[in-house]
């Protein structure tokens, strides 16, 4: 009976994962390997293709007049504009992760301040995990899979923009080697969110209890669906240590951008998350 409960929990989290996250690993891998009936993604590999692709990135919010201005503006602003649209997407993704968190059984019964703390500290880790399936060693899908941006192009941007994604690529290549599927990912994301050691938590016990249950479900699922992958559960959990370092470095880079880029403004939701984070 206990393992039936754990399976039910795994199924529930997988369903809310599918409900709240627009681009699954299965879909992303199909796009990346060309095994989809949809058209191939538009490739951004230089400034010219970035300018062309910007229309697609911003198609949902950028009016024609803005677009003309964008086309006329100097290259120097291209990075800023691109990272501005990255921020909008990130803010949107934060709200998707929030909805996913709320769907974890017991989460909304936690102290509201603790819910905020769990999201504040967990959400960038979750986003880094979620971008991994969109990446391969040569680049990453963006804009819901409509665009493929090459790793070389991201590396060619001016400092410090060029330093933002490279550590995520390195992590992703290692993480993708574990070959988790979407249902494994759903459980792992819940484990990350339910971390009882985040600074400033008021009531740790109920969070640890929830995490314990999800950990059991993850362990059971990995054993069942990847029987030949030795120590997979331990290897997945080890990735949580790498994530903390990645987030610390990311927040430092954002801090640097704030100091060096006069035109830089951080999305208010991302500001809330990053302020006094580490």
């Amino acid at each position: 009976p206990e393992s039936a409960d754990l399976r039910a929990l795994a199924r529930h989290l997988y369903e809310s994962y599918l409900k709240y996250f627009p681009l699954t690993k299965a879909k992303a891998r199909a796009i990346l390997s060309g095994k989809t009936s949809d058209s191939a993604p538009f490739v951004i590999h230089d400034m010219k293709s970035l300018l062309e692709g910007e229309q697609m990135i911003n198609s949902r919010q950028m009016p024609a007049q803005e677009l003309r201005r964008a086309e006329m503006s100097v290259m120097h602003e291209v990075e800023l504009r691109f990272f501005h649209s990255c921020q909008s997407r990130s803010a949107e993704a934060v709200s998707e992760v929030t909805e996913f968190a709320k769907s974890i059984p017991g989460f909304v019964s936690l102290d509201l301040n603790d819910q905020v703390t769990l999201l504040k500290y967990g959400v960038i880790e979750v986003l880094i995990i979620m971008i991994a399936p969109l990446m391969n060693k040569d680049g990453t899908l963006i804009s819901y899979g409509q665009i493929f941006m090459t790793r070389e192009f991201l590396k060619s941007l001016r400092k410090p923009f060029c330093e933002m994604m490279e550590p995520k690529f390195e992590f992703s290549v290692r993480f993708n080697a574990l070959e988790l599927d979407d249902s494994d990912m759903a459980l792992f994301l819940a484990v990350i969110i339910l971390s009882g050691d985040r600074p400033g938590l008021l009531n740790v016990k109920p969070i640890e209890d929830l995490q314990e249950t999800v950990l059991h479900a993850l362990e059971l699922q990995l054993k069942t669906s990847h029987p030949d992958s030795l120590q997979l559960f331990a290897k997945v959990l080890q990735k949580m240590t790498d994530l903390r370092q990645l987030v610390t470095d990311h927040v430092q880079l954002i801090q640097l951008l704030k100091e060096t880029e006069v035109d830089w403004c951080l999305h208010p939701l991302l500001q809330e998350i990053m302020r006094d984070l580490y």
Partner: peptide
Amino acid sequence: KEKHKILHRLLQNSSSPVDL
């Protein structure tokens, strides 16, 4: 609470889209 206004709103609003 003031420091995390939007996060609070996201957590408390169910289904209604929050103006991000």
